[in-house]
Amino acid sequence: MPPSIPLPLRWTGKLPAGELAPLNCLFGGGEGMSALQGAQIPKRALWPSVRMGRGGNAESGPTGAPWINANGWLIRLAQYLDASKPVVLDTKPAAGGSALLALVEAMAYGASWVVTHSPETWQGVLAALRFFEAHAEWRTWEPVAELAVIGSFTGEDALIGEEALNLLARRQVGYRIGEPGDLRAAVWASKRPAPREKYSAWIRGGGKWIEPAVGWGDVYAAVSAVHLALTRKRDVMRLWNAGSINCHYLAEKGGRRGVAQLINYAGNRSSDDTSIWLARPWKSAVLSTFEKQTALKTRASNGGIEIALPPLGVYAAIELEG
């Protein structure tokens, strides 16, 4: 993934006063559009949020965890399907929605969001943009994973593959899309016959090939079965009291640095008493927000480390070393 990506501002005919960097192009007004001509702009992107029911309460799935409208899977899939083109999300602010959440969600996954100027959110948006640009190298890091998700993600496989990616992320299962390589397990996310023979050498080498026994008719059940087949022994992270949080956990390939990015889909409502466990026994952890950095106390636990987190806003990154 290129470390440099377009960071567009929605063109409304009048630019906000002051320094606009790191915004580097305009969207929608004709001028500066060339920077975006090579970008992928997924039409299916949603305004990120906790999904609310008619009664105004958060909707939840069978486990009781809130449903969230998340785009992380969509960005990752677009990046997988065409790694040469940057991904830009062009979602329009929803009433009561958080522009900062839309921005941080896109940027945490290495994409960008078409910024709409609003005096109320402007300073926060600029701070977030600068933060992610200061950590542009994260875009080159890999998801920490044990599972490869394989499929065509097109045609009749599209719905299965996409929902599988969404739900695996929601279960905090670390995965990569595509060839299993050095990963321990792979799932075939398709109703079509699995091409096991293509992966026979990898399977002989100890790779675990997963086809959920329940089939893919009910993707929620299938993903639960995949997690069970993988077993929680292979969890790369676990979260507690993290109802509306997704974690995008990356590490430098072959390196000694990582980052667990926590995206709180409840927007500006803080998430209290969240804890995280990481299977890798990192030596140090620092919590970075747009305003400050705080050293975190880690506790050895179950072969990895556990961290009690302070109240979390819309975004925080746990920077890891060792």
């Binding site: 486990t63 009781g64 069970l228 077993t231 929680r232």
Partner: peptide, 18 residues
């Protein structure tokens, strides 16, 4: 365990037990 047919071992691991 709450709302699942998962084996008890998996449920315990979710709580970070071994």
């Amino acid at each position: 365990p709450w709302s699942t047919t998962d084996p008890l071992e998996e449920y315990m691991m979710e709580a970070n037990w071994d």
